[in-house]
Amino acid sequence: MRKFIGGIAVLIPILLLAACGPDGSILGQGGKELKLAHNQSLDHPVHKSLAEFARLVEDKSEGEISVEIFANGQLGSEREAIELTQTGAVDLSKVSASALESFESDYSIFSVPYVFEDYQQFEKAMNNKEVTDRLYLQTEDIGFRALTYYNAGERNLYTKNREVKDVSGMEGLKVRVQPSQTSVGMIESFGAVPTSMAYGEVYTALQAGVIDAAENNETALVNNNHGEVAKYYMYTEHQIVPDMLIMNSARFDRFSEEEQQVILEAAEESTIYHEDVWKETIKENTEIAKNEMNVKFVEVDKQSFIDSVQAMHEDFAQSEKTGEIYKLVKGAAE
């Protein structure tokens, strides 16, 4: 019965997307209307930037190509969105780089704690063509390619009722992590207990004491109301994990070179647009969390956290699977 229900759940969005265009073509497969899935709310900065991408595509193509956005996880989880993009049931999706780890190990580089010392190093790497060509095109043989990235901020620790000043304060804390082996290893290196769970469960888990802490950027405090139950926000700045805009590779290849250029230019320009939207959002959210939700923002001894994960860096650098991307990204960042 569960398998049957699960199959129906996957089939419904696919049927929803298989709408015929005016010429009888299947939109999202042969027509010029693109379907884009993501799991953020309509007021999230990433959604605003995706809406800008859609506007730019239509404008640059003089109305020949349009993009319909399915927000709020309407078409499923991030993993489901990736799988739908692989099969071509949707044309594009916005997913966290960490969600792509299980599809391509190169994406695990973003989960390595402190692989970037600051956001400037991250930008250097993401504006390096050798880095982006490897990351963006590495997955073409499994059904999708990346078009661009969006700043998802620096990930920091927030706790329900414990102020953490250095890594020793992490001892025994139950911390929600993303479904990423690298993130699990990071929390263990900090001396805490990693707990994987869906993002939508974090609020009630913090409230009930199932977990003591989580880690994310400042938008989580306000957009997801985590600041109502988590009263300490520590600037650990342990990861910079971007959001990625991916597209079904066969769908991309069916466009002419001129149309491909339109899509790529729109993606790049939407990333530039996103930087300003993101900075303003973080500023606003921090003020709301501080003044209206009484969240205390704490500076930490970041070096103690950096020291605790050096073994992870050595493992990545020496691994046959991740050594090449680690060296490439570190070299570009520095």
Results as ranks from 00 to 15, higher is better:
2 R>S: 08
3 K>L: 04
10 V>P: 00
11 L>P: 06
15 L>H: 07
16 L>D: 03
20 C>E: 12
28 G>V: 12
28 G>S: 14
31 G>M: 11
33 E>C: 13
37 A>W: 04
38 H>W: 08
39 N>V: 13
43 D>E: 12
46 V>L: 13
52 E>L: 03
54 A>F: 03
58 E>D: 09
58 E>N: 14
58 E>Q: 11
59 D>G: 00
59 D>M: 02
59 D>Y: 06
60 K>R: 14
61 S>G: 05
63 G>I: 04
72 N>P: 00
79 R>T: 14
80 E>G: 13
81 A>S: 15
82 I>S: 08
83 E>Y: 09
89 A>P: 05
95 V>F: 08
97 A>V: 02
103 F>R: 02
106 D>G: 04
106 D>A: 11
110 F>Q: 08
115 V>S: 00
125 A>R: 06
125 A>D: 03
128 N>Y: 05
130 E>G: 00
131 V>R: 02
132 T>P: 02
136 Y>S: 02
138 Q>R: 13
141 D>L: 06
146 A>I: 01
152 A>C: 01
153 G>I: 04
154 E>K: 11
156 N>G: 05
158 Y>G: 05
160 K>L: 04
160 K>H: 06
160 K>P: 05
162 R>Y: 09
163 E>W: 03
167 V>D: 07
169 G>Q: 06
175 V>N: 09
176 R>W: 05
178 Q>L: 07
182 T>Q: 13
184 V>N: 14
187 I>N: 10
194 P>D: 09
194 P>N: 05
196 S>N: 09
197 M>Y: 05
197 M>D: 08
198 A>W: 00
202 V>N: 12
208 A>R: 15
209 G>L: 06
211 I>S: 10
214 A>W: 07
216 N>Q: 14
221 L>G: 10
221 L>T: 05
222 V>K: 07
225 N>Q: 11
235 Y>T: 02
235 Y>N: 10
238 H>D: 15
248 N>L: 07
255 F>L: 15
261 Q>W: 01
262 V>A: 07
267 A>L: 00
268 E>F: 02
275 E>A: 15
279 K>H: 13
279 K>E: 15
281 T>H: 10
284 E>Y: 12
284 E>N: 13
285 N>A: 01
287 E>G: 00
289 A>I: 00
298 V>Q: 14
299 E>A: 14
305 F>V: 03
307 D>K: 12
313 H>M: 01
316 F>C: 01
323 G>I: 04
324 E>Y: 11
328 L>H: 01
330 K>V: 15
331 G>C: 12
332 A>I: 11
334 E>G: 13
